[in-house]
Design a binder for these strands. Structure first.
Lengths: 210, 210
DNA sequence: CTCCCCGGATACCGATAGTATCCGAACTGT
DNA sequence: ACAGTTCGGATACTATCGGTATCCGGGGAG
């Protein structure tokens, strides 16, 4: 009945089986994340992911419905880290302008290593063939846009200023700019990522007072 | 000796063989373009492209080194059309502001049908595995950025104004914005493509006179 | 202690990019 | 005009990969 009883032997609590499976899943996601990021989605085979994680392909399919779901778990893992980082950026010391500057720096660094954007873009193409993936990505993207819009709105209302664009629109512009710049940089490493901050400030320039 | 001699029978001039091959290549590119755009790069098989063009896969491999080169030919075909369209936009009547407005409209329409951007993004992922594709895409991208920068510079010098950013930087920003917005829209059709023009004008706003 | 359940392994299938080989028609030299 | 060569495209085959079906052994419940 109880699924997490203590045992006389070393095994204890929460079900050895469930714990091992969770660990398997974690390792698969970690390895897949590394390989998807460095080699891309299409170029990463499930066989190699499983092998480098110390399992067989069967482990993948007993933890995920397939390659697509594994990649979505990877993206979730990445997004979770990004949320933490952005939260740190905005919860740090300094005025609101400082927060915006720090965000620009963070985004520039993220764009400077554009492999994540490349993965996201490539996986976006998969969504065209899979309505499930399409709706999942759409949902995530809307959440991201809404989160950015909320940050913008908070900053502007705290500052008592109004932008040229409503927060939702400004958020979409910033996200587009970051994605596009990352895409360009993934092809041409010579593109300067520093201009994200400049463009960001140009887009977020306050409207002249009525 | 002569490779384009007239014959007594129907065959004549310029080499029947070369002409038929050129036609084959054209049809393959046309069909591949349609399928790559509508289904994406990975989801389009060479067998189906060849079949829908009325050939076998062998025709593909005797005209292209492989799938990658076929896709680059498709992208070239698309870019050629885009160059013509942009040239029309900028050679049309009206002042320079009108030209910018028309460009914004054209870009918005292109972003409204983001399938080209999706193909370009997906193919960008392929470049990571293929140095040849990588350098080819990098070269094309630099040409595009330089062309946009040249247009911006021409417009601003004609107008006698200076922007907040040098033309090359402004071009990169605009291109990023367009690509990113197209990418967002390829996932979420609800994203408003009209904001490209607004963001474009915000980025190209003249610097205050010193 | 026994039976069952399920996470993971193994074997297999279909599709697809790429390669090797072949065929026949267009080119070439006489 | 005829014989030999060349080459564009077809056919057959291989390797790889995503996905499915089936199997096995150890943890879980009574």
């Amino acid at each position: 009945m109880s699924i997490d009883q203590d045992r006389a032997d070393g095994s204890r609590g929460a079900g050895v089986r469930a714990e091992r499976q969770a660990e398997t899943r974690r390792r698969l996601v970690d390895v897949a994340r590394e390989m998807f990021i460095s080699d891309g989605y299409a170029a990463t085979s499930l066989d190699k992911v499983a092998e480098r994680a110390g399992f067989s392909k069967g482990a993948v399919y007993s933890n995920f419905s397939g390659k697509e779901e594994l990649c979505m778990a990877v993206l979730d893992s990445i997004h979770a880290e990004q949320v933490v980082q952005v939260a740190e950026v905005f919860s740090g010391p300094g005025g609101l302008d400082d927060k915006i500057d720090r965000f620009a720096v963070w985004a520039r660094e993220g764009i400077g290593q554009p492999l994540w954007v490349a993965l996201e873009s490539e996986f976006g193409a998969v969504a065209r063939q899979s309505p499930f993936v399409a709706s999942a990505l759409r949902r995530r993207q809307r959440e991201v846009r809404a989160a950015i819009a909320a940050l913008i709105e908070q900053v502007t209302t705290d500052q008592g200023i109004t932008l040229r664009f409503p927060p939702e629109q400004a958020a979409t512009m910033l996200l587009s700019l970051g994605i596009g710049l990352g895409a360009l940089r993934s092809i041409d490493h010579g593109v300067d990522p520093g201009m994200f901050g400049d463009a960001m400030r140009a887009l977020l320039r306050p409207a002249p007072p009525a």
